[in-house]
Simulated scan of single mutants.
Amino acid sequence: MMLFTEVRGLPVVPPAESGPLGTVTSLAVDIASGAVSHVRLRGGRLRRESALPWDAVRAVGPGAVRVRSAAAPDTVPPRHDLLGRRVLTETGSGHGTVLDVAFDPGTGRLLAVFTTRGEVPADRLLGLGDHALIVRAG
């Protein structure tokens, strides 16, 4: 298990001995599949933000995110970061703010969301938008 906050700031390293592709800025999530969909990174000559699909990731460890190849990054998916996002139940009740997210670094599968009002199991996640993370009341 790893936390999103542990991955932020790690270098993204290709398999060749060349330098890092950039630094992780955040992890994008697909709520429908309950998994990380992309690694967002900032780097390169112009220091622009780009994204690599999760299936390009070979390993995530405490020192780096290792990718399978230095392939061109995807177009950047819409930015809906979980960290700091307001949490609402499907009935509109507040459930705090997202502090961190636990995930399996091998598969990208989300395990739990930690909010200011407690832990929310990943199977209770319903949607993520500009305004909030929506969860099933439990």
Rank of each mutant, 00 (worst) to 15 (best):
P121I: 02
R85C: 13
L125I: 05
R117A: 11
A112P: 01
R117G: 00
H80L: 12
H80P: 00
G127S: 15
G108R: 06
S93Q: 12
G108I: 06
G94P: 07
T116I: 08
H80E: 08
P77R: 03
L88R: 15
H95D: 10
L82R: 06
L111I: 10
T97Q: 15
V101P: 04
S93C: 02
L128V: 12
P78T: 03
T91F: 07
H80M: 07
L133H: 03
R79C: 01
L125D: 03
L110F: 05
D104R: 12
G118N: 10
V98N: 02
E90D: 15
R109K: 13
H80G: 00
E90R: 14
L111N: 07
V120M: 00
S93T: 09
G118C: 09
T97V: 15
F114W: 13
L125S: 04
T107D: 13
L99H: 13
F103A: 14
E119H: 04
S93R: 15
D123I: 00
E119V: 15
L82I: 08
R79N: 07
R85V: 14
R86N: 03
L128F: 05
R109N: 04
I134R: 10
L111F: 01
T116S: 15
V101M: 06
L88D: 11
A102Q: 11
A132S: 07
R117H: 06
R117V: 01
F103T: 14
L83R: 08
T116A: 10
